[in-house]
Write a protein that binds this DNA or RNA. Structure first.
Length: 925
RNA sequence: GCCGGAGUGGCGGAAUUGGCAGACGCGCCGGAUUCAAAAUCCGGUUCCCGUUAAGGGAGUAUGGGUUCGAGUCCCAUCUCCGGUACCA
């Protein structure tokens, strides 16, 4: 660079100027605690001001650090937070770390470095990277889920659930002590053996079976490679979601959460949430409520009956056979007492294969139905016919009762099965709209559905269903039943890097809670994190022998429950990665409260009506959001929080994609090693032509862009603007380094508008009087930006600011006052440059608390407006009319326009449509 | 397979209730500045026909429809993305 130029442009807005002022303002914000917000009751906190709780889904800090995709949502929430502050809101905008989980532990296995160390390092990296982007977080509220002061309360909430039960009558959780008291007093009956005839152990058993957090034996997804069990949701196509390792099914005793008890409320409370409709639908489908009936079928020659669930009890006349799952208890009996009609060896083998079959294999041939006849027959109560009972793996043990009545004429799967094995098909529902598919599963009119016992012929499906259920109920053969796809939540993991459970076991295997004043139960130190591979899965914490075996007193069990000297074994499983994120939004209200999990007053103020905006990726649409809602509802029922839903408004930012390049053999070429030559992309090292694909940013695709690099080259304000300018916040868009310069030039023009590039000081030639065109443009921009920000329509807000700057630049006119108002508009988006302009304009307080500029409606319209004139819907000319012109005047002006007149000459005007301030359309031919 | 969402210039995208399609930015073209380059500034840029013009034609995935008027509404088809996967 030439020396001369360097002098003239010494204060031009570029990377040097941007980086200098950005780090200066970041230090200022931190030193002055600009974004620190108090709580009700704190000195200087005005609780009468409206509040805005703006929350980002906190990140899992990986060792690799941030890439430019991470901050997209954070920038979005930061803009709204800053906007709300300028509009007089108390804004809670915190950040923290979801820091327990598998990756750190995997890394520990490889390197032997303690996960706490690597995690802390990753957190420091993330924090430093985030701070360079200039977010307005209240860092004084920062915490990580691995902090013992935090997970102490995660354990405390678990204990709350452990010590609670779900009362079906009131549909709410209550302390388990109430259940015990009611049973003791006899105000509540218990199923089975009466309460007062039970032994102490039987009573404990009964109570344990009612806890919200309970120990259950479940067929679980055991992943030998990861050395842990996984929730259904963490298994995709028979492989672990993380790492793609094979998963096998085996029964195991595990801590569970009774989330199914809340199925109805989790479903109905979705109503009224301001969430993306796709996410609402996914949650509804995940819960999977269905209405139908439980029906008992007598088994021929047995006093037992077979229970099935059906959503179409009205098709019972069309049931021609029954199917049970390989795991069904009836199969055990068949194997023990086979009839002559079945092939006992084949069944044994089939059941065994099905059991050991991994889900991958099961998926592979979903089309082909397999199964065997069991030799048993059930009696159809409607027709009194014998129906063969088959065993087949298309019936799942985990849903309904693991048995179905097969209606091949009206269920696709039953139809395929019937076809494969030559079983009869009987049509019992006639489609109304004439659909005559061989298998019709829609609603229609019942036919062929009459017997001595009951008739539903001629009834429409809904009515038929009602009639048949009433008949079942009258004859004790069945009853209406609501079913859910949702299963209870498997909450134990066998890994090290998670929250320990605050519970111990005595020699008899009975469990006792650690009392809450003994929390947290801290993780013991381990030197070896290698998963324990064994036939019988063992938790990793079992390696910490000294920690594991202790006494009740040492562990902190209430002496009234267990004598302090009693030897006990600690629970060696840990909680899953989801645990910490189930309630962090609550903790942010009072993150350093040592007395309670959250300060009551602070919770009421910030979360009384939930989080006002929750921004995060759509990948959490089901699991995290469902789990967090579930925990929230438990806490709500127990009177610990004041809202029934945690997140009032939810928004998913789009995925930031990036170009990746691959050679003909599909191998990947690093982005920086590719050059665009004409229409093609070329590997600069080999000269080979490569293909460009759009993909998620990832290390493996070698297409990761680091925000630090972008900031170094253009500054944080440019990075923020570019990410918001790429398109709508909710849409995914490809990162294109080439485009960044556009918004950087915009900031350069903003800077030049107010700052002398030679001196770096405020221009001495700013206008004294406001230019009307500039003032009008400013009002239009204020109106647009003010409207767009609450809708998170940042791309169009930025476009409008660019337009203003282009106008002011071409008019070469801006006053101090106009510049000051524009700096306010810009400040949520590009806070550093805005602070600098604000300061240079002579202010000594942060722009953060400046009042948001207002606009004048009258400045948005002009006296004369231009109207396009169409003939037969095609624009043929334009006329200028006074803004208040009457319909008649406009019509006259339109037909008198020279060009228009020449075009309609000789034609008959049929009609003239005038849309005020929009358009004129002349219908003439 | 089923359920959602989306298809607009060379590219990212605008067009809030049907009313000038392509705002704004990138790229590209031309010019200014410069010894030169970068940077910056100014102008142009949907495509086709028209000598640069005036002007005209086509055009929002495809084919139909409703309407004075359709990117927007309706029907059918295609493509892409997301969710889900025997849930009885």
């Amino acid at each position: 660079m030439d020396t001369h130029d360097q002098q003239t442009n010494a204060f031009r807005y570029g990377s040097t100027v941007a980086n200098e002022l950005e780090s200066r303002w970041q230090s200022h914000w931190q030193a002055e605690h600009v974004f620190q917000i108090g709580n009700p009751g704190d000195e200087g906190f005005d609780a009468n001001k409206p509040k805005f709780y703006c929350l980002d889904m906190f990140p899992y800090p990986s060792g690799a650090g941030l890439h430019v995709g991470h901050p997209v949502g954070y920038i979005g929430s930061d803009i709204l937070s800053r906007f709300k502050r300028m509009n007089g809101f108390n804004v809670l905008h915190p950040m923290g770390w979801d820091a327990f989980g598998l990756p750190a532990e995997q890394y520990a296995i490889e390197t032997g470095i303690h996960p706490a160390k690597t995690t802390q390092k990753a957190i420091d990296t993330f924090r430093a990277q985030l701070q360079k982007i200039g977010f307005s977080y209240d860092w004084s509220r920062e915490f990580a889920t691995i902090d013992p002061e935090y997970y102490k309360w995660t354990q405390w909430i678990w204990l709350k659930a452990y010590n609670a039960w779900f009362d079906q009558e009131t549909q709410a959780a209550k302390p388990i002590t109430e259940l015990i008291a009611q049973l003791d007093e006899g105000t509540r009956e218990c199923e089975g053996t009466p309460w007062n005839e039970r032994t102490a152990i039987e009573r404990a058993q009964y109570i344990d079976d009612h806890r919200l957090a309970y120990l259950g034996t479940q067929v679980v997804n055991w992943c030998p490679k990861l050395g842990t069990v996984l929730a259904n949701e963490e298994v995709i196509d028979g492989l672990s979601e993380r790492g793609n390792h094979p998963v096998v099914r085996r029964p195991l005793k595990q801590w569970m959460f009774r989330i199914t008890a809340y199925a109805d409320r989790l479903l109905s409370d979705l109503e009224g949430l301001d969430w993306p409709s796709s996410t609402l639908r996914m949650q509804r489908e995940w819960i999977g409520r269905s209405e139908g009936a439980d029906i008992f079928f007598d088994i021929e020659g047995s006093d037992q009956s077979l229970l099935v669930y059906s959503t179409r009890p009205d098709t019972i006349f069309g049931a021609t056979f029954m199917v049970v799952a390989p795991e069904h208890e009836l199969i055990q009996e068949v194997l023990a007492n086979p009839t002559s009609e079945c092939d006992i060896d084949a069944i044994g083998e089939y059941v065994n294969t099905a059991k050991n079959r991994s889900d991958v294999d099961r998926m592979a041939d979903t089309k082909e139905k397999s199964g065997l006849f069991t030799g048993l027959y059930a009696i159809n109560p409607a027709t009194n016919e014998r129906m063969p009972i088959w065993v087949a793996d298309y019936v799942l043990m985990g849903y309904g009762h693991g048995a179905v009545m097969a209606v091949p004429a009206h269920d696709q799967r039953d139809f395929e099965f019937a076809n494969a094995f030559g079983l009869p098909v009987r049509e019992v529902v006639k489609s109304i709209d004439g659909c005559d598919d061989e298998c019709f599963s829609g609603k229609g009119i019942a036919i062929n559905s009459t017997s001595d016992a009951v008739s539903i012929d001629g009834q429409e499906t809904d009515e038929a269903r009602q009639t048949i259920i009433e008949w079942f109920e009258a004859n004790a053969m069945g009853s209406s039943k609501t079913n859910y796809r949702l299963r209870d939540w498997l909450f134990s993991r066998q890994r090290y890097w998670g929250e320990p459970f605050p519970v111990v076991f005595d020699e008899n295997g009975l469990h006792y809670p650690v009392s809450s004043d003994a929390l947290p139960v801290e993780l013991p130190k381990l030197t070896d994190y290698e998963p324990i591979e064994s036939e019988d899965p063992l938790p990793l914490l079992a390696k910490a022998e000294d920690w594991l075996r202790t006494t009740a007193g040492e562990a902190g069990v209430d002496p009234s429950l267990l004598h302090p000297d009693t030897p006990v074994t600690r629970e060696a499983n840990t909680m899953p990665g989801w645990a910490g994120s189930c309630w962090y939004e609550i903790r942010f209200c009072s993150p350093h409260d040592n007395a309670r999990f959250v300060d009551k007053e602070a919770e009421q103020y910030w979360m009384g009506d939930g989080v006002d905006l929750y921004i995060g990726g759509a990948e959490h649409a089901v699991l995290h959001l469902l789990y967090a809602r579930f925990w929230h509802k438990i806490l709500f029922d127990l009177g610990e929080v004041s809202s029934k839903e945690p997140f009032t408004k939810l928004f998913h930012q789009g995925l930031l994609t990036s170009y990746a390049f691959q050679r003909a053999n599909k191998s990947l070429v690093p982005v920086h090693q590719v050059e665009e030559r004409g229409d093609v992309f070329v590997d600069t090292e080999t000269g080979e032509e490569v293909e460009r694909v759009i993909a998620k940013m990832s290390k493996s695709l070698r297409n990761v862009v680091n925000p630090d690099d972008v900031i170094e080259e253009y500054g944080a304000d440019t990075l923020r603007l570019y990410e918001m300018y790429m398109g709508p916040l909710e849409a995914s868009a490809p990162w294109n380094t080439r485009d960044i310069v556009g918004v950087h030039r915009f900031l350069q023009r903003v800077w030049r508008l107010g700052i002398d590039e030679q001196t770096g000081e405020l221009r001495s030639d700013l206008a004294d009087e406001s230019n009307d065109a500039v003032e009008r443009a400013l009002h239009a921009t204020i109106a647009k930006v003010t409207e767009d920000i609450p809708n998170l329509s940042y791309n169009t807000a930025i476009a409008s600011m660019i337009e203003f700057v282009n106008t002011a630049t071409s008019e070469s006119s801006i006053t101090r006052d106009q510049l000051a108002r524009f700096a306010c508009l810009l400040s949520p988006f590009a806070p550093h440059i805005a602070e600098e302009l604000h300061a240079k304009l002579g202010n000594d307080t942060s722009i953060t608390f400046e009042a948001w500029p207002s606009f004048n409606e009258a400045m948005l319209t002009s006296d004369v407006i231009e109207l396009p004139v169409q003939i037969m819907g095609k624009v043929r000319g334009k006329i200028e009319v006074p803004a208040d012109a009457s319909q008649e005047d406009i019509e006259t002006l339109a037909v008198q326009d020279e060009h228009i007149a020449s075009l309609i000459e000789g034609k008959t005007i049929r009609k003239i449509i005038v849309v005020p301030k929009q358009i004129v359309n002349i219908v003439a031919n």
